[in-house]
């Protein structure tokens, strides 16, 4: 997958390079599994995923629950191992903690209620044997000012937005080049979200940090990212520059996501569901993964997995995995 060289980056290897990553969860049916509706046979969470993130780039991975987006985040962070494939950050394996940070979805769960914010931020420094003076600078970079006042506070005293800032500060402490953010604003109130998004952009601009922004919200993905990658049932179905994918969605799934987005714009058409049913649990259909929910599916869709190819009429780097992409009617 060769990315178009960006204006502000060199044409050399990307910062993050993911190639052919597959993960299958083994069948282990405990009571928890039963309650979580995980079936007995192995579940393919990721199926041969390729992904690049260049230095200073924000790439959004968009998908519903069950799309494999969180698994992808965890594989890249090194929390779980891929069954197949390669994950490289600056040409090194995923254990290079210092260059990859992670921000989790739930800031209430990410901070240990029993430890101070300073202790949280210092944790990575301590584990890596780095100097502690980065605690203050990290808190400041996350706009927790004055840093000294925050160091000794406990999570209980903080709002959700402030907690997420602390989590970001904890990631910044290790001076990462890439931060993986798994739904970093979905648990926050609307008014808190803007502040965190602002911080993410600011850190990209000022420190050149690249972000892998994982979200279910296509609006957010479009607004914050340079590139959007749409994930469905563990595979990339469409990718391209954010503007291109939104203006000219080439995959029926992306179109369904877009049509389902409610809008506060009084002029916008009301939402409607273009796709039937829900993301299947367990059994991935043969051929195109989306075909059993797709309004445009034909017999040929069942035959083989559609490869990711240049989107018809799309710009550079806009690729789609749909054999009918060229025949889809224009989107109303």
């Amino acid at each position: 997958m060769s990315e178009q060289p960006r204006a502000n980056t060199s044409a050399s290897a990307p910062l993050l390079r993911v190639r052919g990553v597959s993960v299958t969860y083994a069948a282990q049916r405990s009571i928890a599994d039963l309650l979580a509706r995980r079936p007995a046979n192995g579940i393919v969470a990721l199926d041969s995923v390729d992904l690049d993130v260049n230095a200073g780039e924000i790439v959004a991975v968009v998908g519903e629950s069950g799309s494999g987006k969180t698994t992808l985040a965890r594989v890249i962070a090194g929390l779980i191992d891929a069954d197949e494939g390669v994950v490289e950050v600056e040409g090194e394996g995923p254990n290079d903690w210092r260059s990859v940070g992670m921000v989790f979805q739930d800031p209430y769960e990410t901070l240990d209620p029993k430890r101070t914010l300073g202790e949280f931020v210092a944790e990575g420094l301590e584990a890596q044997g780095l100097p502690m003076d980065r605690v203050n600078t990290s808190l400041e970079a996350a706009e927790l000012l004055p840093a000294a006042a925050f160091r000794d506070r406990v999570p209980e005293e903080l709002s959700g937005g402030q907690r997420q800032r602390v989590v970001i500060a904890g990631a910044l402490a290790l001076n990462p080049k890439l931060v993986i953010a798994d739904e970093p604003v979905s648990m926050l109130d609307v008014s808190m979200r803007a502040q965190i998004l602002k911080l993410i952009e600011q850190l990209r601009r000022d420190q050149g940090i690249a972000w892998l922004f994982i979200t279910h919200d296509l609006s957010l993905a479009w607004a914050i990212s340079d590139r959007v990658v749409v994930l469905y049932l563990g595979a990339v179905v469409e990718e391209g520059a954010a503007e291109q994918v939104l203006r000219n969605p080439a995959h029926p799934y992306t179109r369904a996501l877009l049509a389902a987005l409610p809008s506060t714009d009084p002029g916008a058409a009301s939402t409607h569901s273009l796709a039937a049913g829900e993301i299947p649990q367990g059994d991935t259909p043969s051929g195109c993964r989306f075909r059993n929910r797709c309004a445009h599916a034909v017999e040929a869709c069942a035959n083989k997995r559609p490869p990711l190819e240049a989107a018809p009429g799309g710009g550079a780097g806009h690729r789609v995995a749909c054999i009918r992409a060229a025949e889809l009617p224009p989107l109303s």
């Binding site: 008014s191 979200r193 803007a194 609006s219 479009w222 877009l258 987005l261 809008s263 506060t264 916008a268």
Partner: peptide
Amino acid sequence: AAPDARAGRRTIKVLEGH
């Protein structure tokens, strides 16, 4: 406060404080 892809709006208002 939130971007709106349907309306093509990328600019968000930042409500400070909590």
